[in-house]
């Protein structure tokens, strides 16, 4: 490697499988931005990277785990959290991070999401919400707004269904740390991911992202830059707002911030304590 090569290397590349470059993401996609947020959070916290496990499901965001140069696992569709639970319970010393998309985590994997929140297992779930199934070509999903257009909710009718608000869902299911940011608020989002990792309990961080190739194209929202500019314009920071007020209206108002940060006994801690108590008789 020449000196100029080493200067050009990205500071986060030490965590990344560079031999897997280029990324599969389209230009203008937010998933790469979120990948960097996770890498920076790991870096800022000085985590023992070999003890860090990155898990994802299926889809565009589901490819994230494969870029991290540590123990990583790419599960079947929707099952990232279930896999991560097995990992964390079998070896509580590991730092477990789930990175996956809204379709993966909230539709096919929705049951695992709410039950993991209820159980309060120490893991950090980073959900990139781009309002559609990008990998399969842009169909509506569990977060697609009513009357939005997609490959399976075409003009002129649009989406017949109504979306989940994932912040409300995670909070009401029992997550101990819940935040939402847009992909543009990279520093704040990274801080929340750090807080989530440090938190002894289940942390859910939603990152609102842009999918210009599919969702943006079909709803005429512009290119990647324009979509990210829009996210910045409509993001409204309301730290500490009760989660049930964390509204998300794509056109006008995306409430961002940290909404939940509560204490609740964590699953593996309780399990270890119970086993210890039993041993002492």
């Amino acid at each position: 490697m020449t000196e100029s090569d080493s200067i050009l290397r990205h500071p986060m590349s030490k965590y990344i499988r560079e031999d897997r470059q280029p990324w599969i993401y389209c230009s203008g996609c937010s998933v790469g931005v979120v990948t960097q947020m996770v890498a920076r959070a790991i870096d800022n916290l000085g985590l023992d990277f070999t003890k860090t496990v990155v898990v994802s499901g299926i889809g565009c965001t589901g490819r994230t785990s494969g870029y991290f140069k540590t123990g990583t696992y790419h599960t079947t569709h929707g099952r990232a959290i279930a896999f991560a639970e097995g990992v964390k319970i079998a070896n509580p010393e590991l730092e477990v991070i789930v990175v996956s998309g809204d379709g993966d985590l909230a539709a096919i994997g929705g049951n695992h999401l709410i039950h993991a929140c209820r159980r309060n297992i120490d893991m950090t779930i980073v959900c990139v919400n781009n309002f559609n199934y990008g990998m399969t070509g842009g169909q509506f999903g569990p977060t697609t707004e009513h009357e939005r257009y997609s490959q399976t909710s075409p003009r002129p009718v649009g989406n017949v269904e109504h979306p989940f608000n994932l912040v409300k869902l995670a909070a009401s299911s029992g997550a101990t740390f819940v935040a939402r940011w847009t992909a543009v608020q990279a520093r704040r989002a990274t801080k929340s991911i750090e807080t989530g990792i440090k938190k002894e309990g289940l942390s859910f961080i939603e990152i609102i992202g842009a999918c210009p190739t599919e969702f943006g194209r079909m709803n005429r929202l512009g290119n990647g830059v324009e979509m990210h500019q829009h996210l910045l314009e409509v993001a409204e920071i309301q730290n500490g707002l009760p989660a049930h007020e964390a509204e998300l209206h794509y056109d006008t108002r995306i409430v961002c911030g940290e909404f939940v940060n509560i204490e609740k006994p964590e699953y593996t801690v309780v399990l270890t304590e119970m086993n210890e108590r039993l041993k002492k008789g």
């Binding site: 696992y73 099952r79 639970e85 097995g86 079998a90 590991l94 049951n111």
Partner: peptide, 28 residues
């Protein structure tokens, strides 16, 4: 609990088996 292991009851069989795969990859 007597052998220092974990019994975990999941929300369905899909989560059960997937968690078993996860646990196995930690060496258990």
């Amino acid at each position: 609990p007597e052998v220092g292991g974990a019994y975990v009851q999941y929300e369905d069989e899909i989560a059960s088996i997937t968690s078993v795969i996860g646990a196995s990859w930690t060496g258990a």
